[in-house]
Design a protein around this nucleic acid. Structure first.
Lengths: 332, 332
DNA sequence: CTGAAAGCGCTTACAG
DNA sequence: CTGAAAGCGCTTACAG
């Protein structure tokens, strides 16, 4: 038979409402009653039933994190989990719990989200950019449901979001090389159709252009993101008559291959060649020679996301807002 | 003003209890009333308030996943998240939600767990082996709280757990080599104090012994788990007068270094040398030459864990049980 | 500063 | 097969 608020009230010789007020820190309660009640709570080892609290209060202090959680997701997309840890940590410190929800093999994702809102199973929702669609976005907006999207959605402008800035990351890479007056430079990129790859390259080109440094077409290679292709691309670049003085790999996997090529050809970094890539994980810690890394702290982005959603819940009239996490340069 | 069960009852011209019975699929309800009620539900677009349901029923259909969720955890310990995805998926299909909880910088973890139990914020708990201690274990057992531990705890024997079997994985490696009559073999392991490392080595030795194949001490190297150390160890082994015909690396990172050594020395796998390691992730997909991998499907372990806890909840008198996930050999 | 009472939206014996 | 009513354990106007 678990202890309820009624037991505490009887034990302390006060009413149930008074106990509740002590529990909720009302300032109208006298110190002496507070002490009495708190003593009884301690003596009876009482803990409020969170189901009853949540029901009576009409809020859950729970946030749903909506994403895709398939097998091997943790290996193929560790960043998503790092973001999640950031979101979680800040939510927890704000007194919120976080419930995971998977939408990856959901045939009616819109109905799932509608259900969350209708059945009030959470006070707000964090949605990973890969699982949101326009229907869901409109549903959230029309219900004014507190939310935050991880990744800048390209529909519904009234959504609240946080994102990384890959364009800027590309620019950082170019600035880094320009400041050191490195020339010529080369770039190994993923398929042009990949958004992140495209942004990084675009940013890179923008800055090179700004400094009037041309990148001849043959110094730019687009390929699929396997280490073998990265290796082949780097080999090709380094064998040219005027070999580049820098290789920028658009992603980690390509950098694995490029490193192999650099090391095979006996080149030293950075004396013979500058070597840059993006993201610390998953591979740069084991890449030899060590590249200079343009990294984005996505854990921090998660913290910011949680901050924003808590503020939205506390203050529903808050304007839409967005937040972009800046890149950082890491020399390893 | 949200729609409640009362609105549905009025609209359908029945009592609240009848609506509830329809909602909960009682078999005593006539088809005609069922239809009437279901129509009203649809027309009013009614969804039960989950807070009220949970409160009235006295259960949450929610499970807490207790672990450590720090920054970079996703990169340094992706397996934990793969397990989590497995747990989550099975819980979701069983109609349970899963709430994350972090205990990494909790000064009073025992009180946190006591709180979960006391305030009934979940019907059960999944605890990652890295965050459980004897106090928590005893608390859970004495409250008969439905639980499952990820990883075999070495205290309280009445705990319910699932685990991988690293000893067996080591044995698989040895069997693999014995069947191919490879000799002599060498082993590069992490520090002896690391449990997983130790188990894998122990399993490996057991089987080698069984086939009366000795592993001379100089063919076994213990080192710290960096790729540089793995490289150095492999170099040393491969330069011996009677070079080993197989290198078994106790972990992924060591294998990165060993691969580098093998490839530098121009050896072909498996013609010149057999090359084995454990776990597919994080690195084996980019290791060249490709090792043979003894892998453990931890996602599946997560599925099993969720299964067990659901059964425990449905049937509290269920005996303690445990489950071990078997390794598999992957040729890449 | 404190308490009696209504209410949150369901579920579930129990009676019919 | 259906319904009236009690109850789950809190919170919160409202009255005093």
């Amino acid at each position: 038979m678990p202890i309820t608020i009624k037991d505490v009230a009887e034990h302390a010789g006060v009413s149930v409402s008074t106990v509740s007020k002590v529990l909720n820190d009302w300032k109208t309660i006298s110190q002496s009653t507070k002490d009495k009640v708190n003593n009884s709570i301690k003596e009876l080892n009482y803990t409020p039933n969170s189901r009853a609290v949540s029901f009576a209060r009409g809020n859950t202090r729970n946030i749903i994190y909506l994403t895709s959680l398939s097998k091997d997701e943790a290996y193929t997309n560790p960043h998503m989990f790092d973001i999640m840890c950031g979101v979680f940590t800040r939510l927890a410190s704000g007194g919120y719990t976080m419930t995971l929800m998977d939408i990856s093999d959901d045939i009616h994702p819109k109905e799932t989200v509608a259900g969350i809102i209708a059945r009030k199973s959470a006070d707000g929702i964090v949605i990973h950019g890969s699982v949101i669609n326009e229907d869901i976005a409109n549903l959230i907006i029309s219900n004014s449901f507190p939310h935050i999207v991880i990744g800048h959605p390209d529909f519904n402008e009234r959504l609240c979001w946080v994102d990384t800035n890959h364009l800027l990351a590309g620019q950082y890479a170019a600035e880094y090389l320009s400041q050191r007056d490195v020339s010529p430079v080369s770039f190994i990129g993923g398929k042009r159709t990949e958004f992140i790859s495209h942004e990084r390259e675009r940013g890179f080109r923008t800055i090179m252009l700004k400094y009037h440094k041309k990148i001849p077409p043959e110094y730019v290679i687009h390929t699929s993101s396997t280490w073998e292709e990265g290796y082949a691309a780097a080999k090709k670049l380094l064998s040219m008559k005027e070999a580049p003085k820098a290789i920028v790999c658009e992603n980690n996997t390509l950098a694995v291959g490029a490193a192999k090529a650099i090391s095979e050809m006996g080149l030293k970094v950075p004396d013979d060649i500058f070597f840059l890539t993006f993201d610390i994980y998953p591979y740069t810690t084991i890449i030899d020679p060590k590249p200079t890394i343009i990294n984005i702290n996505v854990y921090d982005m998660g913290l910011q996301a949680a901050d924003m959603i808590i503020r939205k819940i506390d203050n529903p009239s808050l304007m839409i807002q967005s937040y972009t996490t800046l890149p950082e340069i890491v020399e390893s």
